[in-house]
Design a protein around this nucleic acid. Structure first.
Lengths: 231, 231
DNA sequence: ATATAATATATTGATATAAATCAATAGATA
DNA sequence: TATCTATTGATTTATATCAATATATTATAT
């Protein structure tokens, strides 16, 4: 963790972060007053699972991974988050703890807002509460998809899904240069790094993708999608 | 689906359903006015995934399973629900569709409340909205646990978890007579019925449980818990 | 700045194993 | 009697694990 600074104002985020669109002048002022930005270097931890949940964050620049850990074993990456999303914590209203860890993948700037401020707005601005409920529902639906992926698909299907997610949701260009490691790809696809590498090789041999170093090109999106869907 | 009737009033549910505790007189009146009960026989479907989400339900009597389906393949049981919980749908505020199916396991009575009424209360009673957010967070935390179970534990660990869930959350006595099938046990543990039966046999041989027909006795809870935790 | 050492990440191969699948039979329920 | 659920056995297979090497990245010293 390094530099603490403060510059972009909240109106920018009102435009680009879905749940903030319903905030009024007053709400934004409350946030703007106490918010601050922190620069994280690639690899640094932003939130640690199990620690007190004191602030929500928004990634203003860069990319972060949100993941579950348990014991010393394997990690499970819930999602990657770039600019445009607020990261709260399911610990809000429950035990006041973080239930996942968040780490910077690229050098990233995160905006910190005290949890109490957000809770206050929830209790006074009903549209905001409703917006958060909507977001929770979206997350539920995504989680359901994830359950089906984990129980019905085999590893190649899940890896194909991960690659399409990276293309559609994160890097948005083709080809794209991944900044996450092979281990991260594995942790997103619920498999091992060895298996991931082997499967990527097969994808290359079958002409689904090309991949040199960290530059990925999706060559046959239709087929990749078919692998993703049919498992 | 059979008999439509109406008798118990909402005050009973205000006491026993967490999210209803914050409802005021007026809210309860709105609900009481339009609610109705339906008796479902064991095996009958209450909600079908993909159909319009028109009513929330509460199970007043009996037991229901909430599950995901995809294609003709395997099902994934998200949870079992008895009296004391409201079943909404993540389709609320999103696409107005059900994203899971619900079926009666035992003969069950379900109370139906029009979705619009619930949505109306959300928009006027902030405490209710907050209560639902809290519930969404709880669900998130449970989902995280589930993700870890699916990715880190092997089948015996997940089955042990299922048995303990049945004991702690559903039947609450020991021994308990399960009303769900072996296939259901498998669908809760993300494995096959054959594997489930074989693993139950091992649990019996190792003195963790005894099981004759559908009567389950947890003999060594400590060890069963250890299997559940360590996978 | 450049070379070299040290460390982390990526890759390939060989092996072990949990668990799915297929198949047949037994038992329970309608 | 017929149909659905449960059980046991044999076989296959996806994938984890272990082990070794290669490549890339970072740190350190000259």
């Amino acid at each position: 963790m390094s530099k603490t600074f403060k510059e972009p104002d909240c109106n920018q985020c009102k435009d680009r972060i879905e749940v903030f669109k319903v905030l009024n002048e007053e709400d934004l002022k409350k946030i703007d007053k106490i918010r601050y930005d922190v620069l994280f270097h690639a690899g640094e931890i932003i939130f640690k699972q199990g620690t007190p949940f004191t602030h929500t964050i928004c990634i203003l620049e860069g990319l972060a991974k949100v993941y579950l850990e348990a014991g010393s074993k394997r990690r499970f990456i819930l999602t990657l988050i770039g600019p445009g999303e607020m990261i709260g914590s399911p610990g809000m209203f429950i035990d006041g703890l973080h239930h996942f860890s968040v780490a910077a993948v690229d050098d990233s700037v995160a905006c910190f807002v005290q949890r109490e401020i957000i809770e206050g707005i929830i209790s006074t601005n009903n549209r905001f509460a409703t917006e958060l409920l909507k977001r929770a529902n979206k997350r539920d639906i995504q989680n359901f998809q994830r359950f089906l992926s984990l129980t019905r698909k085999q590893a190649p299907g899940r890896l194909a899904e991960t690659l399409l997610f990276l293309y559609h949701e994160i890097y948005k260009t083709n080809p794209f240069k991944i900044t996450i490691s092979r281990q991260d790809l594995a942790d997103m696809s619920a498999t091992t790094k060895e298996n991931t590498i082997r499967t990527l090789k097969i994808f290359k041999e079958e002409g689904l993708i090309s991949m040199t170093g960290n530059l990925v090109t999706i060559l046959n999106k239709r087929l990749l999608q078919s692998v993703s869907v049919n498992g």
